[in-house]
Write a protein that binds this DNA or RNA. Structure first.
Ligand SMILES: [Mn+2]
Ligand SMILES: [Mn+2]
Ligand SMILES: [Mn+2]
Ligand SMILES: [Mn+2]
Lengths: 222, 222
DNA sequence: AAATAAATTTAGACAAATCTAAAAAATAAT
DNA sequence: ATTATTTTTTAGATTTGTCTAAATTTATTT
């Protein structure tokens, strides 16, 4: 009954969770790429995880998580994101630095630890990148955010998440005075380079956003 | 140059550090007992750690840490005790619950994490059991505390550490209103069972301490 | 429908960390 | 000084997770 997975198994479970889209199936090569390992290694692990009833898997047919597997994945994601929140909010890390550390912290086994950490942090619902944090039952807020690219002109919206965690992106956003929670509105869209001009609430000067930037900036229309 | 040890190696290094007394040597069986493993496994690891220049080791002759090894050990002890402090002071764990969790957390590799945690905790110098926390350079306060058994009658002293981390001990200490930092003074010693009567500062009623309790309660004469 | 290419699995090997049982060395006892 | 006991090391296996190279299956072209 008690889930008892190794670090390697947990990393596989989480990776499948992140790759899998509703209805669809994950492939061996996709998973190998995600985990920076070889397809043969993935196949070995798939057999083990199938045995442990974490995966639905038929050779050559692809795979996805069972209900058990998704539960396990949500537990790992919960830990990962709570630790990221802790690192940024309490230890003053930048959000470009926390992923690697959380990649290790997410494997600490104590359930009591993570629930007490959750309480200490006052039950945050989103991590520093705007991704939702599963609660103690695995429930999390559904994100209906869209790429800034898809936000219509003159629609007030709030920056809700970033799909890239590089320090280069953080650097650019800082320079443009944009962070998660910023209110903004697209004022113009330029067909030539698909760049965007927008106005940020309480800031006079208009801001220019490249296609590349708009692609990774997600917003929630208000 | 950067130390790069596996979890197993780190556990061995720390165990040798804890077993080793100045000048003396540690034996294979002692280490096997400490780590709850077999002597054969210890020998295997000793050879590896000697190769990595962590240990001075000659077959059949015992071993102890090199300067490099002690430096590594202090780094692990620092992490272990800082995490214990965090768990008790920030997450409201009891000091009987933290050791196991810290046993995992001490292996998280980020140096930045531990230094930021140190700052967040305001650079504590002692962990919840009264053991000194090495600073960023491995320096720590020397403890000149003695067993309550060895405290002379009528000598004011302060409880400084406990040599046992069981919940049974914590339970007993709570019941007797004793915690780390308590001021006390031995009023009588009884030869029959080597029990001790003492008075705690600001508490009227005298308290009786068994031999077993006095052995694990350490105090610093004021 | 073959032939070719791509994806996946299998076979066999390896490193890390552990174990049991046997051999060897060091200590202690006669 | 032998003999017996204890401690330590070696030999050989095992588990976990990984890899390369070869075989197999599936998908895509011709
Ligand atoms: Mn991880
Ligand atoms: Mn995140
Ligand atoms: Mn440990
Ligand atoms: Mn401690």
């Amino acid at each position: 009954m008690g889930s008892n997975f190794s670090v390697a198994e947990e990393n596989y479970i989480k990776a499948v969770y992140h790759l899998q889209k509703p209805g669809a199936i994950v492939t061996t090569n996709e998973l190998a790429a995600e985990l920076q390992t070889k397809a043969a290694s993935v196949t070995d692990m798939l057999k083990k995880l199938k045995q442990k009833k974490v995966l639905n898997y038929e050779p050559y047919r692809g795979f996805n998580l069972t209900t058990e597997g998704r539960k396990a994945a949500l537990g790992i994601v919960r830990k990962h994101r709570l630790w990221e929140y802790f690192l940024v909010e309490k230890l003053q890390f930048g959000w470009d630095e926390v992923h690697e550390v959380a990649e290790e912290l997410e494997h600490i086994t104590s359930k009591k630890l993570i629930d007490k950490l959750d309480a200490f942090l006052d039950f945050p619902r989103f991590d520093p990148h705007g991704d939702p944090i599963p609660d103690v039952n695995g429930k999390m807020q559904v994100q209906h955010d869209i790429s800034l690219n898809d936000l219509p002109v003159n629609t007030p919206a709030e920056v809700s998440s970033v799909k890239d965690q590089s320090s280069e992106l953080l650097d650019l956003l800082k320079h443009k005075n944009i962070s998660i929670g910023s209110r903004l509105q697209v004022t113009r869209k330029f067909g030539f380079d698909q760049s965007i001009e927008l106005r940020i609430k309480d800031i006079a000067a208009p801001v220019n956003i490249s296609l590349q930037l708009a692609q990774v900036l997600y917003v929630k229309p208000l």
